[in-house]
Design a protein around this nucleic acid. Structure first.
Length: 277
DNA sequence: TCTGCATGAAAAA
DNA sequence: TTTTCCTGCAGAG
């Protein structure tokens, strides 16, 4: 599920697997052939995530960044040992040779990318410009909390739209949006500036907690144990309060969960727990 | 096995 | 506002 937590998890994973190693880079599908040839054979210097954007840094020859945005369909796959034969539309493949001295991932490692919205090379100024367009990311320690709060306080945009607007908050997608609004009793159509600043602060802090948990678990779980139908492992059906639960009873009050389109995206809420103001 | 929908966002119209 | 990227899953049958 590519919301911000997925991308941060990938940045961490790629860091452990690949950083410091010289990579064979190619594009079996051909759509990234030119870019792949440019960084092929270079050492990967670092990885970074901001919101839903993933960056790989190749600092040695020309200071180049690989920028990946998964979009709706994009998917990474990786493994150790000999890389599998390319199958289907494989946009990007990274392969590092075995390194016997290494403490982790000493075997050959490979990473595959298919179906991304963006897979391109950037210069450092282009990378800076990209990040400058994005709002603070709850998953980044350097997130400017005041900047988002000011934006919320000054905007007439529905809070449900602002939460998904990557210029305002980076990394929140449709699931975290619906769930954080539910958890704080806020209707998605509430004008942002009408959201109590104290409530907004609590929502932001909650996003930090929920998304960090998402990075650790590799999935989005937003329900509290008391609100789940069964104890023990969290099933798919128990993981959310309102996201994709339209027509089902609210876990807190039993009212039917509603769904509607908001700025061309499906949004879900409980009409009782999240009254329209 | 088939069908429709989905975590996103940019470009086209 | 619609189309595109073109994958994976759940639900229907």
């Amino acid at each position: 599920m590519p919301e911000g937590h997925t991308v941060h998890r990938l940045a961490n994973r790629h860091r452990r697997m690949l950083v410091g190693r010289r990579l064979a880079v190619d594009s079996p599908q051909g759509r990234f052939a030119e870019g792949a040839a440019l960084v092929d054979g270079q050492r990967l210097g670092g990885t970074e995530a901001w919101g839903k954007h993933l960056l790989h840094h190749y600092p040695d020859e020309g200071d180049v960044w690989l920028h990946v945005h998964l979009g709706l369909y994009g998917k990474f796959r990786d493994g150790t040992g000999e890389p599998p034969e390319p199958r289907g539309a494989l946009r990007l493949r990274l392969v590092a040779d075995a390194e016997p001295g290494r403490s982790s991932y000493a075997d050959p490692v490979w990473v595959e990318l298919r179906g991304p919205t963006a897979c391109e090379l950037m210069t450092s100024p282009e990378r800076d410009a990209l990040l400058a367009r994005l709002g603070p990311d709850p998953l980044r320690a350097d997130a400017d909390v005041e900047q988002v709060a000011a934006r919320v306080a000054g905007s007439r945009m529905p809070i449900g739209t602002l939460l998904m607007d990557q210029r305002s908050v980076a990394g929140v997608g449709n699931v975290y949006r619906a769930e954080v609004l539910f958890r704080h009793g806020v209707h998605p159509r509430t004008p942002s500036r009408d959201v109590d600043p104290v409530t907004w602060k609590a929502m932001w802090d909650d996003l930090v907690v929920l998304m960090r948990a998402g990075v650790r678990a590799g999935r989005i779980v937003t329900t509290e144990p008391d609100d789940r139908s069964r104890a023990g492992r969290v099933t798919r059906a128990d993981a959310h309060y309102v996201y994709r639960r339209q027509g089902f009873p609210c876990r807190r009050c039993g009212a039917r969960v509603l769904a509607d389109d908001l700025a061309a995206r499906r949004v879900f809420w409980c009409p009782v727990c999240q009254p329209e103001v």
